[in-house]
Design a protein around this nucleic acid. Structure first.
Length: 733
DNA sequence: GTAGGGTTAG
């Protein structure tokens, strides 16, 4: 307030001064009129920044207007100045109008700049540059390139200022062929030693994935500066070669070129990619030493680095340091949470962002949708769907694909299908997302039908489409269809990857064709990996084939000796064959390697809030009621003739203990709590971190009938819909 | 009036 007052005093002094001066220049207006005019310009100027220079400029109207134009950040400011200039009789082709075009172009008011530009009879190269730069700077690359060709059509030759912007437009499209032509022109016009143009070429080839060409241009540079080095370093980082990027960085350190903050950002990106926390930290140290720790974009790179390396708390500290975080920082933090299993924090942060009216971009919403899918709550997914449908992203292809995936993972195939149906111009990924969704819910037939509809629509499948189809067949026991689909792959010249082979092994193995599955593995053209042997082992467990299972396990342990899951699988296989000695041996091995079984937990969705339960959990405030409900359920199950299987690795407990442990399984607690917390008839929605166990699966089927409720359960692999005593998976999972 | 960077990835 105090500052404002003293400014006001300064202004009023300068206003009188200005008015007196300006009339002496002979402008056709009264002092009074100019007084009002100048005062409006000053208020306008106060909208952005004000400093004492204004006192100087008030003696020179031309310079004063030039100053105003240079400092304008809004179209209405430029508009007012433009109007004044015309009223004051400035020439249409004069220096100030040129400045105005340049200024509007810089702030992104390109349509406005273009209108003034089109009024020029013979625009010079400066003006062409201004328009091209405006387009290129604001991602209107097609217009930039088009204007560039039009310029040459009008016999204006590009200069050293034109070419970097044109190259940027070619990289942004990206348009490799066009950029090559521009490269030819650069050669013909003799810009081989213009470091600005050559740096533009390095960045152009790198962005188009032509990293070798980028390197050739870089090597040919007479005097490379920090921009050249940054271009080539980030080029390698962007092309998935972080190690090479870092090697070049160490080359750079041997030269006299001084690092700046953008160079550090590129180096950080490389360390982030290889998740090298230690080197990332040392760059952080360097940042602090150079006094750059408040540089917003470095803060983003550092936040992303810590988040990607799993240090979410440190990332959050940096995030909170930024006074006015921009979208990219929000994106880095939200995705950092989502990537490290903090899906709920990711969603919470997204909600904070919305509540602060910060504009989310398409990356933000995509990350947030992925986080919602991870959380798995139906209410949350509906909320997100509602948010998107009211947003500007409702027709965004990428956003809709993520939505389809989210709805499927949150248990609502109908909502997934609604989004799918309203998505126009579906590409192969949209179709695949829907097919994968059907697969997740064991709706193999629908998946195959959709695949055929996709063929009809003339969309070519890709490798993900086939993963979806094969998984769908797996989850529905469609052995023959799966086999046929696998062989369709070669019609589209798609090389099957590990996952495809594993699907087929799974498909054959689960159906009991263990020998076929084994033969299939032996005939694989690529070295069978963990996925294929893992699928065979789990099939051997289902069908109690100890000999083959042991062989598969041996292969698995030679590939990865520290995976808990494989030991548990083998131990379960032995247990199913009642080979208790072997079970014990496996347990000892696990203990020696310091491996322990993953703890199971289940979440139940009560009015959109997820409540978590572990095995034998008694931490809930209503645990007494929950256990009473559980006991009553248990009684009713027994009356209905339910006999628990005792084949898992619980052999060293006595029968009573076994039964107790089984009915204390987290999903049973979640079901019991769901029953006492919701009105009769409400569908229960449960999310489990592991695969459903045989007993709980059987019990859930029966419970759905006894209490007349639908139970929808997402386990680590797929969905189960329990209703009237049966499960949608047909006991096939 | 020039150039380089950061967030995602079904």
């Amino acid at each position: 307030m105090a500052r404002r007052l003293s400014l006001d005093r300064k202004i009023s002094h300068s206003l009188y001064y200005f008015a007196a001066k300006i009339t002496s220049f002979g402008y056709p207006a009264s002092t009074d009129k100019f007084f009002r005019h100048f005062s409006s310009l000053l208020t306008l100027h106060l909208d952005h920044s004000f400093n004492d220079e204004i006192l100087y400029y008030s003696f020179y109207p031309d310079s004063f207007y030039a100053y105003l134009i240079d400092n304008s950040t809004q179209k209405r400011h430029l508009n007012q100045i433009h109007a004044r200039l015309l009223v004051l009789g400035f020439q249409k082709s004069g220096f100030l109008i040129k400045k105005l075009i340049n200024g509007s172009s810089n702030i992104g008011e390109i349509g406005y700049a273009r209108k003034m530009f089109d009024d020029f009879a013979e625009p010079d190269v400066f003006l062409w540059n201004a328009v091209i730069r405006g387009y290129s700077k604001h991602n209107m690359f097609v217009d930039a390139v088009e204007t560039y060709w039009r310029m040459q059509f009008n016999w204006v030759s590009p200069d050293g200022y034109t070419l970097p912007h044109v190259l940027k437009a070619c990289s942004g499209l990206p348009a490799l062929e066009m950029g090559r032509q521009v490269h030819g022109q650069i050669f013909r016009h003799g810009f081989e030693s213009d470091v600005f143009v050559q740096n533009g070429l390095v960045a152009f080839y790198a962005k188009c994935g032509q990293i070798a060409r980028a390197m050739t241009v870089f090597d040919g540079l007479h005097d490379s500066n920090v921009v050249s080095w940054t271009s080539i370093i980030s080029g390698y980082a962007q092309n998935g070669q972080p190690m090479e990027a870092l090697r070049i960085f160490s080359e750079m350190r041997k030269t006299n070129v001084k690092l700046d903050w953008i160079a550090l950002v590129s180096v950080l990106r490389a360390y982030t990619d290889i998740e090298d926390l230690n080197h990332g930290k040392s760059v952080h140290g360097c940042v602090i030493k150079m006094g750059l720790e408040l540089e917003p974009d470095l803060l983003i790179a550092l936040t992303a680095m810590y988040a990607k390396c799993g240090q979410v708390t440190t990332a959050r500290l940096l995030f909170d340091m930024m006074k006015i975080p921009n979208v990219i920082l929000w994106n880095a933090m939200i995705s950092g949470y989502a990537k490290n299993g903090h899906a709920e924090e990711a969603v919470d942060l997204f909600r904070v962002m919305i509540s602060k009216n910060i504009r989310a971009d398409s990356i933000t919403v995509r990350v947030a949708i992925v986080a919602c899918a991870q959380v798995g709550s139906l209410d949350l997914s509906r909320w997100m769907d509602n948010y998107i449908s009211k947003s500007e992203y409702r027709d965004d292809l990428f956003v809709n694909t993520a939505l389809i995936d989210m709805h499927a993972k949150c248990g609502s195939l109908d909502m997934a299908r609604t989004v799918f149906d309203r998505t126009l111009e579906k590409d192969v990924v949209v179709w695949s997302a829907m097919i994968v969704g059907y697969g997740l819910h064991g709706r193999g037939r629908e998946a195959i039908d959709l695949y055929q509809a996709m063929m009809q629509a003339g969309v070519c499948p890709n490798d993900v489409t086939f993963i979806g189809l094969l998984t769908a067949c797996n989850h529905s026991g469609l052995v023959e269809d799966g086999w046929w689909i696998f062989h369709c792959m070669k019609d589209y010249k798609i090389e099957p990857r590990h996952q495809h082979y594993a699907c087929v092994v799974d498909l054959l193995g689960r159906a009991g064709y263990l020998d076929l599955a084994y033969d299939f593995i032996m005939k694989m053209p690529i070295e069978p990996g963990i996925t294929a042997w893992g699928a065979l082992l789990s099939a051997c467990k289902i069908h109690r084939n100890v000999q083959l299972g042991e062989y598969a396990a041996k292969q698995l342990f030679s590939l990865d000796s520290c995976n808990t899951g494989h030991y548990v699988q083998l131990s379960n296989l032995y247990a199913s064959a009642r080979m208790w000695d072997h079970v014990r041996k496996i347990r000892i091995q696990m203990r020696e390697k310091g491996l322990s079984k993953d703890l199971g937990y289940s979440l139940v969705d009560i009015n959109g809030k997820l409540q978590a339960f572990r095995v034998g959990d008694k931490s809930h405030p209503r645990y007494k009621e929950i256990y009473e409900e559980l006991e009553s359920l248990e009684r009713r199950l027994k009356q209905a003739g339910f006999i628990p299987h005792i084949d898992s690795s619980l052999h060293d407990l006595n029968n009573e203990e076994i039964e107790e442990t089984l009915c204390n399984h987290s999903e049973r607690l979640a079901i019991a709590f769901g029953l006492i917390s919701t009105p009769p008839g409400t569908t229960l929605r449960i999310i489990k971190n592991l695969r459903a166990c045989v007993n709980c699966h059987e019990a859930s089927k029966l419970i759905s009938k006894l209490v007349n409720r639908q139970i929808v359960m997402r386990d680590a692999n797929r969905f189960h819909h329990f209703k009237d005593g049966v499960c949608s998976c047909g006991d096939y999972w």
